[in-house]
Simulated scan of single mutants.
Amino acid sequence: MASNEKHQVQTTGHTWDGDLAEYNNPLPQWWVWVFYATVVFAVVYWVLYPAWPMGGSYTQGVLDYSKRAKLQEATSEATLREQYPERFDALNKIAEMSPAAIAKDEDLMNFVNSSGKVLFGDNCSACHGAGGQGVVGHYPNLADSDWLYGGTHSDIRQTLINGRNGYMPAHEDKLSDQEIEAVATYVGDLAGEDWAQDPQKIEQGEEIFHGDQAACYACHGQDAKGNQTLGAPNLTDAIWFYGGEKETVIETLVQGRQGEMPAWQDRLSESEIKILTAYVHALGGGQ
């Protein structure tokens, strides 16, 4: 009897509904020691390494360890020269050359294509896609020959440095629904769209396009071939940023459009901007 009581499972003494008891099973000894070890490890880590945020800073740790400092050390001029002499020489050449001149150097372009792919993937692909194909209605295709702000090396470099702010005003307060449909039909006819075949609407839309009421010509030009200084697209080439369906063109006229390309001059070095300029130009659509 005494032996059975000795091996009986202990309880906390709490009982519910007469027979529902709470067991008091101790944790396995190894589990307890592992838990204590993790606590000790955490305390030691807090002391040795950066750990706790403190306003705009953080605790440095007695080892003063910094991943950023390690990265800067790994990419320092001395390290590059010693461990990556070819990369060091290429970057030195790029620093002294224009993107257009870089594009003419076959060896440098091999370096640009490898380094530029990494830079593009880290900084540009989230919007423009891994291959620069863009997203219709959101981000332009960088691999075709249609450029809103120009596709020369100089134009691309300026876009990277300063960014771009595109704006197409809404016309819902300037034109009636019938007039908006007429302008859309005229623009669709310029691009050769099948849905734009009403001669009367085309004639009316042309008059509005070139008139002072809508003044579309002021940005897109008398020939509707756009203005790269303003980022106004060519309306005659059937390349549509937001889509060329009748409903989409009407929506653009009614609501207007607005887009922004951020500036990268404070995020990338001059050499990185040159590399990206040459890389984007070489994607297939550079002028």
Results as ranks from 00 to 15, higher is better:
A95E: 14
E96A: 15
E96H: 13
P99K: 07
P99W: 04
P99S: 07
A100S: 09
A101G: 08
I102A: 02
I102D: 11
I102F: 02
I102M: 11
A103P: 08
D107M: 11
D107K: 14
D107A: 13
L108S: 02
M109D: 10
M109W: 10
M109S: 11
N110C: 00
N110A: 01
F111C: 12
L119V: 03
F120R: 04
G121N: 13
D122T: 12
D122G: 08
C124H: 04
C127A: 11
C127D: 09
H128S: 05
Q133C: 11
G134V: 00
V135T: 14
V136G: 03
N141Y: 00
L142A: 05
L142M: 05
A143V: 14
A143C: 12
D144R: 05
L148Y: 13
G150D: 08
H153Y: 06
H153L: 01
S154V: 08
I156D: 00
I156M: 03
R157C: 12
R157M: 15
T159P: 05
L160P: 06
N162Q: 05
N162M: 00
R164P: 06
R164Q: 04
N165D: 10
G166E: 07
Y167G: 09
P169L: 00
H171Y: 15
K174S: 15
K174N: 14
K174T: 13
L175W: 03
S176Q: 10
D177V: 12
Q178W: 02
Q178R: 01
A182N: 09
T185L: 04
Y186F: 03
